[in-house]
Nucleic acid binder design. Structure first.
Length: 430
RNA sequence: GGCAGGUUGCCCGAGCGGCCAAUGGGAGCGGACUGUAAAUCCGUCGGCUUUGCCUUCGAAGGUUCGAAUCCUUCACCUGCCA
């Protein structure tokens, strides 16, 4: 087993500790031996995302130092919804949330070790809330909460000032607080981690344990990932960067990380990478000297893509990107390389039957089919703006039709929108 | 409960009954410059069978040759008074 006490120092230099109830007490607790901790994830979407991964990997670091994680998926809290600044959530159907619980659990399997002396344990807060009666809840849990204090929560205050908040969401904090009580009782859990936005919820649990069981437990938050310009990291034009390859392709995932701003890349590496401090500092230093080589971005993209999607997939999508962004003629690429690259990128298949007079469907149509643009109007607009390319040559006429002879290896046409958005069109031969 | 005001495209926010698919800003997208970066400048920014047509301005009706703009009802929000 690794040195259980070193975890706090490690998190500290990585910049992963935002707040904690009592850092010295926590350090003492981690030094005393293996402790049990948890960080919950509410199934409010079909997949976990990059922002969640910060929390997951922080817990993973604890586990690697010999501590035991509880992989909590909020089957109950996901039905209620944590109050957001922006407004009341729409309740998701019960069966949908159930399905998401299963997907979250599968995803967590990848990051926590469920074997060994400090094996992770999968838990669902529905297990102790489903049969809880309203009266018991109000008498045993509710009595310990002060509405006055609950109103102080930032999200709640914002909602009161704006449109208002339902009793349902207002009660969320009680459920999360009670989770901590149950995990403390059942598993001896003495640490809860989460994003800084969870501080109020987490300390509510700490207080509740003190009141109900007279025990003192720990809380710690991890800074929320923000870019240097203050915006949320992990969101792109197209939306959230998901961990599920069906929602965010490994190719897109890799590209997203590779495009990390210079200003942010050091923070991202410290946050996500499991490499040693010396290794990271070397990469960051060399990248600062020669930023155009983007060694730090590449290191980040490689390690994280390999962790999330596997080593082989990471290599494949990196090779695809290198092939597509390469300087040379795409036609010079070996057929296998081109096919592999375009298969990783978005692509559309055109049946041979659609070839008329040796010509494929028009460019605007193909641009839409590959998903590079949202509509025919957008396709024509993009062509008009000079932002659409076929085989790296600007498309001048949206209505023009590519010839069979334009296809690389008689099979592929490479479409591009702007500088970075590639897609393949494959002609399907009968 | 009474009085007054509001609800516009991804967000904020203009909008005389015809010249409004609807001013302006932000975001997004494209181009230039670059390093598949940032900043900056320029362009673009509902859809389509695209010199025109279709669907949008909280919802449903109505007036009119013609409405985002007028009237009625409903829903929600914001002030003031009880």
């Amino acid at each position: 087993m690794r040195d259980v006490s070193a975890i706090i120092d490690e998190l500290s230099w990585r910049g992963l500790i935002a707040q904690s109830t009592d850092i010295d007490a926590l350090r003492a607790a981690t030094s005393a031996g293996s402790l049990t901790l948890y960080c919950g994830f509410d199934p409010t979407a079909p997949s976990l995302h990059l922002g969640n991964l910060v929390q997951i990997l922080t817990v993973r670091r604890f586990q690697q130092h010999g501590h035991r994680p509880l992989a909590l998926v909020g089957g109950a809290t996901g039905l209620i919804g944590d109050p957001r600044m922006t407004g009341e959530r729409t309740l998701n159907p019960v069966d949908v949330v159930e399905g998401w619980v299963g997907r979250f659990r599968e995803q967590l399997d990848r990051y926590y070790d469920f074997s060994g002396p400090n094996a992770a344990i999968a838990v669902n807060n529905l297990d102790w809330t489903a049969e809880l009666s309203v009266l018991d809840f109000l008498r045993d849990v509710g009595k310990h909460f002060s509405v006055n204090r609950m109103l102080d929560r930032e999200a709640v205050a914002a909602r009161l000032a704006a449109g208002g908040i339902s009793f349902t969401e207002f009660s969320y904090q009680l459920l999360q607080g009670y989770d901590y009580v149950q995990l403390h009782r059942r598993y001896g859990c003495t640490l809860q981690t989460g994003g800084t936005d969870q501080w109020g919820n987490i300390t509510a649990g700490v207080d509740l344990i003190r009141r109900m069981d007279g025990a003192s437990v720990h809380a710690m938050t991890v800074p929320l990932l923000t870019k240097s310009d203050g915006s949320k990291y992990g969101k792109t034009e197209t939306g959230t960067v998901w961990l599920d390859p069906a929602l965010t392709s490994p190719y897109a995932f890799f590209q997203f990380l590779l495009n990390t701003d210079d200003q942010d890349v050091a923070t991202m590496l410290r946050t996500f990478s499991f490499r040693s401090r010396d290794e990271l500092e070397a990469v960051i230093a060399s990248s600062a000297e020669r930023p155009h080589e983007r060694a730090a971005q590449r290191a980040l993209a490689r390690e994280l893509t390999a962790l999330v999607h596997g080593e082989a997939e990471s290599d494949a999508v990196e090779a695809a990107g290198l092939a597509l962004f390469g300087q040379g003629d795409l036609g010079d690429l070996p057929p296998g390389t081109l096919t592999a690259a375009l298969t990783e990128a978005p692509h559309a298949v055109v049946p041979a039957a659609e070839v008329v007079d040796g010509q494929l469907p028009a460019f605007d149509d193909l641009l839409v089919r590959t998903g590079l643009v949202a509509s025919l109007s957008a396709a024509r607009r993009t062509v008009g703006e000079g932002g659409a390319y076929a085989n790296n040559a600007r498309i001048l006429d949206a209505a023009a039709r590519p010839e069979l002879s334009d296809l690389h290896h008689g099979e592929w046409l490479v479409l591009r929108r702007g500088k970075k958005a590639f897609a393949g069109v494959r002609l399907e031969r009968p």
